[in-house]
């Protein structure tokens, strides 16, 4: 078995006295979608910030292709092929598709100090990259990004990351703000990225979306990996339950049942 593209080994992260992540061990493999599930505040965003070089782990190691690496900043991470696409697409609403696509790596023609931004080439490459992902409605690179739908913007951002050589694609709640149809678009693109051999880390708290594309699931509760399982090993209800903090949910139910048994079947009064 080949080494995973990216692996976290016993990663801890604390901010001063507050421990945010405990002993996280995760692996992301090529052509596989790892779904990172967890409620708000479970540490998902801290975890992806460590993977994308924004934060440094307090202890533990990050491996890429089986070799220990440090990711001192987002740039170093993206040079190693780790790309993060955030909820709002990481695109610029008032820029054209072509310009937005090439931010930071603008293609130029000409020579010396007279290098000129190559609009035609940028537009052509950007439109082709997005269309290759199946978003055929984008066909004019001069259109402004803000005129695209949420799903199209996400797709543009993902296509951009893939075009610039991402090997690990971290998607931070890409479907959270989208309607059903738009979300389907994005999920299709996640599948396409997977088919191209990328390792995808898909962060969400929508279990349905996770189950549609995930190969591997990790549930994060209060900064620790509470469950780590493969596709088909758990049902939707089990996963939802886990995310809601499984154990505490079960104990709450037991408590209520106990109260009802001793109070003639009446549930407890809601707290005031």
């Amino acid at each position: 078995m080949t080494a995973p593209i990216m692996a976290l080994r016993g990663v801890n992260k604390s901010f001063g006295p507050i421990d945010v992540l405990h002993d996280i061990t995760l692996e992301v493999r090529a052509g596989e979608v790892l779904c990172l599930l967890g409620d708000n505040g479970a540490g998902k965003s801290t975890l992806i910030k460590i993977m994308s070089g924004v934060f440094q782990p307090s202890s533990g190691a990050i491996e890429m292709d089986g070799v220990n690496v440090t990711l001192p900043n987002p740039r170093a991470a993206s040079e190693k092929g780790v790309a993060t696409v955030h909820q709002f697409g990481g695109t610029f609403p008032l820029m054209s598709i072509g310009r937005s696509f090439f931010v930071g790596v603008e293609p130029a023609k000409g020579w010396g100090p007279f290098k000129v931004y190559d609009r035609k080439r940028a537009n052509a490459i950007a439109v082709k990259a997005v269309q290759d992902f199946g978003i055929t409605r984008i066909d004019d690179g001069d259109r402004l990004v803000g005129g695209l739908s949420g799903g199209e913007r996400q797709s543009l951002a993902i296509a951009r990351a893939v075009h610039f050589g991402a090997r690990v694609l971290i998607l931070d709640e890409p479907t959270a703000a989208l309607g059903v149809k738009q979300a389907t678009h994005v999920l299709r693109i996640v599948n396409e990225a997977k088919k191209r051999g990328l390792a995808v880390v898909f962060i969400t708290h929508q279990v349905m979306h996770a189950m549609a594309v995930g190969d591997h699931f990790a549930v994060l509760i209060r900064g620790a990996v509470a469950a780590d399982f493969k596709k088909g090993e758990k049902t939707r209800e089990e996963i939802t339950d886990l995310m809601a903090g499984g154990a505490s949910m079960a104990s709450l139910e037991a408590e209520i049942e106990g109260y009802m048994a001793s109070h003639g079947g009446h549930p407890p009064q809601p707290a005031e």
């Binding site: 987002p74 709002f88 610029f92 820029m95 931010v103 930071g104 603008e106 931004y117």
Partner: peptide, 25 residues
């Protein structure tokens, strides 16, 4: 601003500073 590749950076920064920084600007 409009012809050299650098002009793009100014617009990107004003559009979304965090994304611009993530894009290596």
């Amino acid at each position: 601003v409009h012809f050299s590749p650098f002009g793009n950076w100014i617009f990107a920064m004003g559009g979304d500073k965090v994304s611009a920084r993530n894009a290596g600007i």
